[in-house]
Design a protein around this nucleic acid. Sequence first.
DNA 1: CGCTGTGTTGAATGCCGTCAACGTCGGTGG
DNA 2: CCACCGACGTTGACGGCATTCAACACAGCG
Lengths: 233, 233
Amino acid sequence: MPSLDRSVLERLPTFRRMAGEDIDMLLKDAHPSRFSKNSEIFSQGEEARSFFLLISGHVRVVRTSAQGDKVIVRHINEGELMGIAIAMERAVYPASAIAIVECLVLNWPNSAWPSLKSKVPGFGTAVYRTIGQRFQETHDRVLEMASEQVEQRVARAMLRLMNEAGRQTADGMEIDFPITRQEIAEMAGTTLHMVSRLLSVWKDQGLVRGARQKIVISNPHGLMRVAERHRDE
Amino acid sequence: MPSLDRSVLERLPTFRRMAGEDIDMLLKDAHPSRFSKNSEIFSQGEEARSFFLLISGHVRVVRTSAQGDKVIVRHINEGELMGIAIAMERAVYPASAIAIVECLVLNWPNSAWPSLKSKVPGFGTAVYRTIGQRFQETHDRVLEMASEQVEQRVARAMLRLMNEAGRQTADGMEIDFPITRQEIAEMAGTTLHMVSRLLSVWKDQGLVRGARQKIVISNPHGLMRVAERHRDE
DNA sequence: CGCTGTGTTGAATGCCGTCAACGTCGGTGG
DNA sequence: CCACCGACGTTGACGGCATTCAACACAGCG
């Protein structure tokens, strides 16, 4: 007996093309759980026992180095997969996942993966497509970190946030969850000081509006021009 | 009739655990090809039609941005897979692959992938394990670029080279293929000037020996200590 | 023997990280 | 309710590291 109605999954792009009975089969092995704000869904280095689908809320994925430096790898949004280490034969989670707000999560034990993959081929394909997209994004980020200035990197981080979790409001695109300057810095590989300075400049130019733990991009196109501005222009 | 003997694959770690008949099945769909030094095996943005296994030689994988900036994503060594876009449902190659020296390559048409995956499960697993390892390495690199100084990044790039293509000689570990300062800079996200300066310093300290397009690491442990040295030590 | 690609080194510029001080918001407890 | 405190945010000043600019050396090759 599925613990969630199939209609919950049918709305998500990942599952839109799947047959109803396939979705039921997925749900048979899954169970939902709730995570409170700031709680950890899985932890870097911990043995990977499950993989997850975020039903509602927002999740931050963080990778920490041996020296304690942190980067925010990505944000996970409603309908996206996370913790899919098993699909790449990895024994431990490569990063930590933290609920930014109250979250509802579906999780499958890793033991269900092989049979799901063979019985619901569309699911395996969706997982591998997700991996491919994220891999490419990660490579883009290496290139970005290697070749662009702080200003461009921060602008790109903001645009990424907008695409991931932008919500249209009267003032512009608002990021749908609370985020600090420090966290934007950890997305762009810089310090909160630089982020604060840049946001101040952009506010004066009418590109963004900010408040405590809140960002609104009032002129996305203008911000894109900043992001694309190269060193010698 | 296989165009290569199975013994060629049996020696490679990727295939060591596979049954002989499975290897024969793989070889049935593959055909070998030769690439001369500096020729392109596949090209960034080009429609992905095949995936590859490097039999002998060395390959450089390069990603170029819209602005023309380049990074060396990784080096491919004998026995490693490359161009496996199909496994992640990607239509085009995300980077270019260039033969550093004369290379012998096995290639499969993408059309062979679905049946290979289902008929030789060990092969699919090997591919996905490879993807997982590289994904993790790429994440490590993002973290490294975000948090470490140029000196540490160059030291790490050298150590990566050593692990990927080190050959023990009387003087130390020698990188097995020609590589310029410019290319090391593209691995570490800096300029050839910085690389040249650092190598000079390290040569004086007895850590490395260099020549034109050649690097020998005479004291790997010492170089590791440089790589691990943090900002405030 | 000139030319091109590669490598080295010095000097100057400037970006950006660090240090420091202060301001503000929100939650908590008296 | 209000005072307090900690987390978050802003801004200025300074200094150092890394890029840039520049000049030169050297090797390999046609």
